[in-house]
Design a protein around this nucleic acid. Structure first.
Lengths: 128, 128
DNA sequence: CTGTATCCAAACCGATACTG
DNA sequence: CAGTATCGGTTTGGATACAG
């Protein structure tokens, strides 16, 4: 993509605000992580809690219900002796995987950059 | 505004989740949009406000300052008679473009799906 | 034009305790 | 195991008014 770094009058506004629709579904700091850990396959409530130790049960339930209501994931109750519930990505939920992967890749780059430059690098100075 | 946006932030990014590093930089519901509109080239404060009508001046300033402090974008003051300020993506900021594009693509799909199915059925239920 | 200050509402998060 | 209830704390966002 030819990126012009000079003045740009936005001759062609790319889109209105296409991010808004998606970001409204990704509401919440833990939502991307939940989708990420669900990408490998359906998981149970306790497994998700173990995957994301810092999350509380209330918040996890809240995000799960929210994502379920939005059709991002499904919820299946297994009528076993100890009740167990499985969550998994719906067809819509799998759509997020490329974006999540891209975000993960950026996080990796940032971590590498920080590790290479110590802490004096926050600007965009390419490594000389 | 008819469009309701949810906020998105990471209070204490857990180390276990690769998304946290990047999501902490993408904190705020408007941040992706700002990066998106800056992808075409540097823009001024008023232009960004015009691009994203639903954002308030306080929030835009806040996100801008935050992204500047994180090295995602730069800020240049033009000492003109009416003061004008330009913002642009740094090298680090351009790293986010793939992720933003992926999110935009998802928003597109969601919009298409909603348009096709109306509003009665956008759920993707598993073949239970 | 660019930004800041203040007030206020809403959403998110955490910890604990408790139920089926 | 899976969840809910409640309390409170923190952050973000919007609106308005005001300042450089």
């Amino acid at each position: 993509m030819a990126l012009k770094l000079r003045r740009n009058r936005a001759p062609e506004p790319p889109e209105a605000c296409p991010l808004s629709e998606c970001m409204s579904l990704l509401g919440g700091a833990w939502t991307p992580n939940i989708i990420w850990y669900l990408s490998a396959g359906p998981r149970r409530f306790g497994e998700l809690r173990h995957d994301i130790p810092a999350i509380s049960a209330k918040v996890l339930t809240g995000r799960l219900r929210d994502l379920e209501a939005k059709g991002v994931l499904w919820r299946r109750v297994m009528p076993t002796s100890p009740p167990s519930v499985e969550y998994g990505l719906t067809d819509l939920g799998t759509e997020f995987q490329p974006a999540i992967a891209a975000i993960v890749a950026i996080g990796h780059k940032i971590k590498q950059r920080q590790a290479a430059h110590g802490q004096s690098d926050d600007m965009a100075m390419p490594a000389s």
